[in-house]
Design a protein around this nucleic acid. Structure first.
Lengths: 156, 156
DNA sequence: CCATAGTGCTAACTCTTGCAAGCAGTTGCA
DNA sequence: TGCAACTGCTTGCAAGAGTTAGCACTATGG
């Protein structure tokens, strides 16, 4: 990764990760043993070598996004969950995710339409919170949608 | 069908990524130029070196999740979108959630904004004439007959 | 006409990811 | 007592991520 100091101001990218890797390993091992899988079995299913899986579980290695994705699939857990445990994604993004993923998954929209839709969506949220939802910067803790017929049934 | 065969010998992890890297580069360049940023400016904001950004945009390198996360933040786009474009995350993974449901469940949107968003969504799909095979949902999201005074205007 | 600052890109290097091979400890079967 | 077959782990190496230094090009302007 980058050992060199980047100088200017730009918060170092990997600073956000740090110690979360340990918990990722524990979490993964938990999930694996919970599924009654050996390292080699999981390795077979994911296409990742078993020594590497071992190292990941002990926090010695920081797996890439593809590996995480593959692990998530094999362990039947959501990739987002793993990203969060890996310190790559913030949990607060979860709320945002559903709309965006739903739009992206909609095969009835063109790429351009998706982009437009997401643009509008992002601008709405930015206008409400004053902050971009992605930045995770704590916005004012009052996104309370004015009551009324908020039929927002908590999905998921 | 994404999780259909976790099968016996597990196709190589990175096979799933392959050509999507190109489109990721194009997409990123699009977003960067659209934001009127030079490579070095973006490099400063992300903490990633400018030559590397250049290589990413030309599809020569496949950035890690942290870099993607950082890029997403700087470009004000969602990390999930980038992951999808990078071929790491697939929208179909996990349950398919309808756009309508996701929008309605989003507590960060006002009712009017939800309605506007769903309106746009519906018009897009109507224009395409296509129907989502999975949801098959004909857009019928409780047409609150409130004329959106400040509908989509509050964009930046 | 040359200097300065902007753009993107190439080259050479370092550090990490991720793998193939191989090790020690257990369990079961002959 | 062997010898398979399983468990997880250690070790070196190839491949690639991401770096700094520096090149070529295009303005702007003194």
């Amino acid at each position: 990764m980058a050992k060199g100091k980047v100088g200017t101001q730009a918060a170092k990218v990997s600073d956000a990760v740090g110690s979360t890797v340990d918990s990722l390993g524990e979490y993964l091992k938990e999930q694996r043993t919970g599924a009654r899988l050996s390292l080699r079995q999981l390795a077979d299913q994911t296409g990742v070598s078993n020594p590497y899986l071992s190292q990941i579980e002990r926090g010695l290695r920081k797996p890439s996004a593809e590996v995480l994705q593959s692990l998530a699939k094999a362990l039947r857990i959501s990739a987002e969950q793993l990203y969060v445990h890996a310190g790559i994604l913030r949990p607060e993004d979860g709320e945002v995710r559903s709309v965006e993923l739903a739009v992206l998954a909609d095969s009835g929209l063109s790429e351009r339409q998706k982009q437009t839709l997401l643009d509008v969506y992002a601008s709405f949220r930015a206008a409400n919170g004053g902050l971009d939802p992605r930045t995770g910067a704590s916005p004012d803790p009052d996104p309370t949608p004015q009551a009324g017929a908020t039929s927002a049934d908590e999905k998921e």
